[in-house]
Design a protein around this nucleic acid. Sequence first.
DNA 1: GTAGGGTTAG
Length: 604
Amino acid sequence: MMKVMRTITIASCLKVGYGVGSRQRVKLRGTPPVPCLLHNSTLFPSRSRPSESIKSKNTQLQLLVKVTNLEDALHVFDEMLQLRPLPSVVRFTQVLSQVAKLKHYSTVIVLNDRLGLSRIGPSVYTLNIIINCFSHLNQMGFGLSVLGKFFKLGFEPDVTTFNTLINGFLLQNREAEAVGILNKMMESGTCKPNVVTFGTLVKGLCMKGNNAEAIQLLRKMEEGGCKPDIVVYSTIIDSLCKDTTVVDAMNLFSEMMSKGIDPNVITYTSLIHGVCKLGEWKEAARLFNEMVSKGIFPNLLTFNVLVDTLCKEGLVGKAKGMVKMMTERGIEPDVVTYSSLMDGYCLRGEMSEAKEVFDLMLSKGSIVDAYSYSILINGYCKHRSIDEAMLLFKEMSGGGLVPDAVTYSTLIDGFCKQGRIRDAQKLFSKMQACGLLPDVQTYAILMDGLCKNQQLSKAIELFEEMKGKKLDPNIVVYSILIEGLCIRGKVECAKDLFSGLSSKGLQPNVKTFTIMISGLCNAGLIDEAENLLIEMKERGCSPNGCTYNTIIRGLFNNNETSRAMGLIQQMVENGFSADASTAELVLELLSKDKVDPALLPLIE
DNA sequence: GTAGGGTTAG
């Protein structure tokens, strides 16, 4: 029923293919009940306030201060509802907007229902905000039903209404419906798409990794007479940077400036992030200086990018220096800054330092969130303190923070790596009992644990289960299965799965190739392993240190000493070196006079 | 007073 209603509603809103009479066909739906996440006492205050206080508040409300937290917003809302005469819908909409900006979407819906009870009629602005909230709550059906209210009140949905709906569909991966609205807008004479409409669609394409299509849309809007702005350009520049095609991003950046569009702090932050990820620190510094020389000053997010990249490079000391610098410039580190720092320590295994940062966050007030807990939990999992991690997990749940699929996946991986498969499986069930859907990565983690703990058949069961749930197994999942098959000695099955990858639209990556090469070596299929090494290069996938070490050990283990020595040479030429286990093997063979001592300098 | 762009975890 929704589908029929949707078609009629959007088309009729835009006066495409339907006459005015079609309005009568729109069925009205009430706003659905939304679970109230708040204490009733906050929403429905029982205490009455003295009129003097109300008067003073009324003066304050004329200037409506920007609320920065939910509690303040609700308080202001309650005060407003008690005023006589009631403030205008504009004032209430301001509060709804601020609550929406704090991402408390279901609260906005609840507050809007209360407005309805207070006989304050919504405006187009209010209704647009409500559609936006339903979009973010994954409730597009209800979002569309708001269109019915427009008709009932005699309002016309405007370009913002449609842009909001387009954004909602894109957020739910319903690209076709988003494009459908765009097409209807283009056909209509009443509500033409604007730069925001295109900007929204560009973002949708970028989110899907379709940078080429995003650029095509950029060109189309130019042709169609809608000038792209800084947001459209920055969206694509950022997406290119994330795709590590920073050169393309820089070209677009130049193009944008040549068209007279000035970059801002967001554009520069994306570019700096892009070059930092490639380890191009000099270029990052150049961009940083360039922006400052243009009078564009780095903000919290710019610094967070720098702090995070330094941490990921293992340079926590430098990251701390950066935090000092930002503080001196009057920019207070936030939960993201500290979380990055904490992760930096975790990556180095410096868990007590990580915990110190965590405690510092706690001491600064309530800025610890589920994300920061997950980072610390991951640190403990990776450093063999799964029990410590579980304590934190219980602590966060007890503190009202909701673990998500990432938190669960982290812990499941922690248990798997300890060989505690039963505990991992229990968590896998528990997360589903809590209403969380395991994603592709959760499945991959548990499948990997099962494969490495002699439970290949259970891993295959999970593989089937995820396909049944319409989760598309990615290359990581296939690599895990291929490895699992190899571990079980089923190298022929592994080969079949490997060769069938491209028909599934998947490209093996360096890990997949290395796994397959390892499997072939262990099965004594040395020629095939060497051929695969050649093939991967031909297919544009460069072997890394792990690939070389794997095949070299395989060759030695199959008594192909001279071929192994040749590959050691090649590995070193390519800038990689023997790892501990290869070196150990070479030394062992050396002691048995099975290899040439001339190899020694190469394995050091 | 409403819609599109940049930061942290598996």
